[in-house]
Nucleic acid binder design. Structure first.
Lengths: 359, 359
DNA sequence: CTGAAAGCGCTTACAG
DNA sequence: CTGAAAGCGCTTACAG
């Protein structure tokens, strides 16, 4: 490894001068010296020693990737491909920009605090963090941060968030199902374990069990359903158990309701695929008897039958955007907007069938 | 942050003594002092400064998680949930043991070298590395390393590898299909882009296009098929294009062969699911007309119809094992075996139908 | 315009 | 049995 001293020796100057050039404190260095040093720096592909960087408190170029939730569909959340894909995208971008990504299995706030400060991380990308958890973390840790897929109920964000336009996704689905002749369609989402105390309180009042992201989708869905003046009751938003056997049981119980609705929109492809096959097991065909719409556009969506109509979200773009915004914050920029939406698009395939004379 | 000096001040000794206790250089320290210092260390939850650790070259407790391949099924490989799941498992284990995980998008050897040495990493876990690539890396980088899912053709490994027992997985499938009345079943795997020059050379001689892992599965499959004395020709090992349209086209062309075989075993669930639906589109029903077996037991395997018979591999266990072995190496242990198999298990569901009078 | 020196928090060979 | 001191590679206030 080449050291600052080596550069200085080659240039015939002191470490100080090289360091000054390196950091642009160049007001009082002769142009000649600057040029000479820059050239050597280039040629030798000099990289400052990490230990020294940390020790002198000049930032670490480490981004912490905090995984804030553990389970989905009863599986570890990472079996869902979303996290992996997002991480890969962030990692790629970070590597291109000369940053490093360290994982924090952020189950507890204490761990996040400890690791982020020990490593003097430049910034954090947090996935699966509720607004409340983030505020609490924020109080104790002063680091640049970008959240991914965190939702607020206030109209204004006072932190950076990169999300998809869930509302619009829901709207597209609702609107599409209405046009296809299903004014009674249901929206079904899975209960979420990542709820905080605050949110749980709301749960007890009988709402929002499925997390704010699904709530947004539902609201969009409702708006889409109501665009021609009809009314879409909250009773058409079903929150189903996360536990798989319990969920199946629940479906058994409400089977007549499902059939009557004629079309079912889901908060995830996984739940949609599961339903298609649940119905199949009960002799009910999709889309002939019941139509189904998913959310996510997973790699299986195109390959199952019927090919799944679902909402595409560009996870890769999300990762790039999240990193990009974080980097800009780290480098001192102040970002005007605090919330960025990744666009979302309904992909029409074969799991919805046009109904001519709606019920 | 509490420093070594602080501990020394509290104990009324010098930094040296604290450091000595910390590192067990305790031969010439009085028991009394040791006890006192240990107690303070405990209470203050002292953590050495990372910068100093790096600077003094005492290891970093960083594990590099090197992602060595990019694409699968024409998607970025991380969309496959395998990487994410493995990473999460390694991360959990590492965090429990006080290690940190940094991602290296190891597309190029140069990057891996650079990052691993800059950060003075204690060890590396490499995914999707061929033996040849690893040897080359090894020559330039002297670090403890554990490979995951790397295969050799020699009978002996001279490096650590954690894999699944592909051969046995293949064997279980072959043996099962034979018993179910399909002595002519085919094994189908997808071409792999991660081949090195060396392997490519072999490709040109018409073999091993699908990577060594699938080759192992095929060999097991063949052995299972031959257990009653029959012969299973290499012509029953089909390697199909990675590019999706090309693969579909290929399937179109060999459709009669597929039907005639009666049963198809795949190198991945993804390919198996795809085939089920490909056949469905051509009016061929699974398992009534053709039986299908997958590999991996992905989360969709149970939820599609017919429920997919496939081979389960315990990815989480694999991650734990990989980290555990790496940690032991880092801590100076010499591991006797160099290759560890994670066991594998055929999960029988509904995609294979017993045939009474085999063709 | 340039460099000597102190300091960041640790380890370790060495002197007492 | 214990501690003063040098050194790891860098930054920066300060003196020339």
């Amino acid at each position: 490894m080449i050291r600052l001293q080596d550069i200085a020796d080659i240039a015939g100057v002191s470490r100080t001068t090289v360091s000054n050039v390196l950091h642009g404190n160049t007001k009082r260095v002769s142009q000649e010296t600057i040029d000479k040093i820059k050239k050597i720096l280039e040629e030798s592909n000099y990289q400052p020693n990490i230990g020294s960087m940390l020790l002198t408190g000049k930032g670490s170029r480490i981004i912490g990737f905090v995984i804030g939730y553990d389970y989905a569909h009863g599986y570890p959340s990472t079996m869902d491909s979303f996290i992996g894909e997002l991480l890969a995208s962030v990692q790629n971008e970070a590597e291109r920009q000369g940053y490093y990504v360290m994982i924090i299995g952020g189950s507890t706030e204490k761990r996040v605090l400890e690791i982020a400060s020990r490593w003097n991380m430049d910034g954090l990308i947090l996935i699966g963090y509720s607004e409340e958890r983030y505020r609490s973390l924020r109080r104790k840790l002063n680091k640049k941060a970008v959240l991914v897929d965190t939702y607020t109920q206030q109209s204004r964000y006072d932190y950076q968030n990169v999300g998809i336009d869930d509302y619009d996704g829901g709207y597209q689905v609702g609107s599409y199902l209405l046009e296809m002749g299903y004014p009674e369609a249901l929206f079904i989402a899975e209960e979420s374990r990542m709820l905080t105390n605050n949110e749980n309180r709301r749960v007890q009042s009988g709402r929002a069990l499925a997390g704010l992201s699904n709530e947004r989708r539902w609201q969009g869905f409702k708006a889409g359903m109501e665009k021609e003046g009809a009314f879409c009751s909250i009773r058409r938003y079903l929150v189903v158990p996360e536990d798989t056997p319990a969920r199946k049981q629940y479906y058994e119980r409400i089977l007549p309701q499902l059939q009557e609705a004629g079309a079912l929109a889901f908060g995830s492809d996984y739940n949609a695929v599961e339903m298609i096959n649940f119905l199949y097991d009960h002799g009910i065909r999709v889309p002939d008897q019941v139509s189904v719409v998913g959310f996510d556009d997973c790699i299986y969506a195109e390959s199952i039958r019927p090919r799944l109509t679902t909402v595409f979200q560009d996870v890769q773009q999300k990762g790039i955007t999240a990193f990009d915004r974080l980097q800009r914050m780290i480098e001192g920029e102040t970002l005007p907007e605090t919330y960025v939406y990744a666009p979302v698009k309904l992909v029409v395939r074969d799991s919805v069938k046009k109904r001519e004379n709606p019920g």
